[in-house]
Structures are given as C-alpha cells and as structure tokens.
Simulated assay, not measured.
Amino acid sequence: MVKQKRGFFQRSLDGIETVGNKLPHPATLFGLLALIVLGLSAIVSMFGISVEHPGKPGEIVEVKNLLSAEGIEYIFTSMTDNFIGFAPLGVVLLTMLGIGVAERSGLISAVLRGFVLSVPNRLITLGLVFAGVMSSVASDAGYVVLPPLGAVIFAAIGRHPLAGLAAAFAGVSGGFSANLFLYWYRCIVR
C-alpha cells in the first residue's frame, strides 16, 4: 500500500480536527464558561468597573456580582426572559425539528446523494458556496444547516470535512442578505 503525501493544508486541517476532538462535550464547555462568567463577575464587580452602554449614550452599566444573593436571584428570575428574548432561538429550534424529521425520513441522505452525484467533484466547492448564498432565503437557517452538511459532503467525496464546513460557512456569511431569487423576481416583475 502506497501512502499518499499529505500537503500542508491537509495536515493543518488534521491538526485542527485533532485539537477539536480533544475538547470536552459542548454541554460541559457551556457549563465551564458559565462558571467562568460567574467568577469573573464577582472579581470585576469588586473593582467597581462600569462602562457606557454602547446603544444608549450617557447610560452607565455597572458589573453586577452574580455570586451575590441579588445576582443569584437575578439569574433565576431573568432566565426565562433571556431564553425567550434570544432572537435566533425560534428559527434554530424550528430548523432543528425540520432537520430531525428530514433525517429520520431519509430525505437528507437522498438530497445529499443527489447533490453530490449531480455536481462534478471539481465544482462541489462552488456548488456548496452557491447553496450558502441562496440559503439567506431561509433567514438564519443557513448557518445551522449548511456547515455540517458541507462537512458531510466533503467527507463523502474524500476531502477534509473542515474544508467543507469552512466553504459552507463562507457562502452563508458572504451571501447573507443577498440572494439571486430577489434579483430574478425583480427582473420578472419589471
């Protein structure tokens, strides 16, 4: 068996993947970051640090100690409002529900297979970036759906999954709020 020589870019992606695989579970990371924020709020509040609110000139915001009695009360009394007030939550939950149904029904694998088979391997990156640009029709769903799909598509054709993830993310980010459907609609209406 002849071992293929791996280029610098491929070795770099492999290194990033190795480091990423060593990270703890996302729920554990979230818990650790929450504890760090609690600790930092206690430390920074002891110094009496305050800043001007960037959206409301003249309003001063002081750091609150989240480990104090008032801070713990604030955490529990504002938890629901923070959860409900998070704007992308509805889109993300609905998208994940739709993805779950599509995955269990076999739709995603069929669409992926069709996409991969219909686009030549040399144009798969272009197709993925184009799909990212067009995903702005579905609001923020492109950020949730396409990067993992790009990674799966690239892995299926023998490329590094992180490159597919990056291509999809670049397409969604680069084409956010820009879409050819709107251009075509405008051309048809005129």
Rank of each mutant, 00 (worst) to 15 (best):
L123V: 13
I75N: 05
L67Y: 04
V172P: 04
N65M: 05
E62P: 06
E73M: 10
N121Q: 09
T77I: 09
G71L: 01
G158Y: 06
T77R: 08
V152Y: 03
G58V: 09
I188K: 06
E70F: 06
M96R: 03
L126M: 03
L33T: 11
A27F: 11
A166S: 05
Y185N: 13
A170F: 13
A102N: 07
L67D: 03
G39Y: 06
L93I: 15
K22V: 13
I157D: 00
L89G: 06
P148Y: 01
R122N: 11
S136E: 09
L126Q: 01
D81W: 03
E17P: 03
I84F: 07
C187D: 04
N82Q: 12
S68C: 06
Y185T: 13
L38W: 01
G20C: 13
L32H: 01
L32A: 05
A69I: 15
A87Y: 12
V119Q: 05
P57Q: 00
P148F: 07
R113P: 07
A163M: 07
N82G: 14
G90C: 08
N21D: 02
I16G: 14
L180I: 15
H25C: 02
I188L: 11
A138N: 10
G132T: 09
E17C: 11
A69S: 13
G174C: 02
F30D: 00
L89E: 02
I43E: 02
G127W: 12
A110W: 09
K22L: 14
P88T: 14
G20P: 01
G31Y: 11
I49T: 14
N121A: 12
V137G: 10
P57M: 06
P120I: 14
F30L: 03
V2L: 09
P26Q: 02
G85C: 05
S105C: 11
M1I: 15
R11G: 08
V61E: 11
G100D: 03
K3H: 10
M134H: 04
T28M: 06
V19R: 05
P148H: 01
F176C: 10
I72E: 02
A138G: 12
I108Y: 06
R104P: 09
A166Y: 07
L33S: 11
S136W: 04
L123H: 08
L94E: 00
A87W: 10
S12V: 15
G71E: 00
G106E: 07
L112Y: 07
L29S: 04
E59Q: 04
G150R: 09
W184Y: 15
P88R: 04
G90A: 05
P147R: 14
A110L: 12
M46E: 09
S12Q: 03
T125F: 08
E103W: 11
G31V: 12
G164P: 01
V101W: 03
G158M: 04
I157H: 07
G55A: 00
I157K: 05
A151W: 00
G158V: 10
L117M: 07
G48F: 06
V189P: 08
G7R: 02
L23S: 01
R186A: 15
S118V: 09
L35V: 13
A42S: 15
V61D: 05
G150N: 04
A167P: 09
A131G: 07
S12F: 15
N179S: 11
L35G: 11
S78H: 10
L67H: 09
R104W: 08
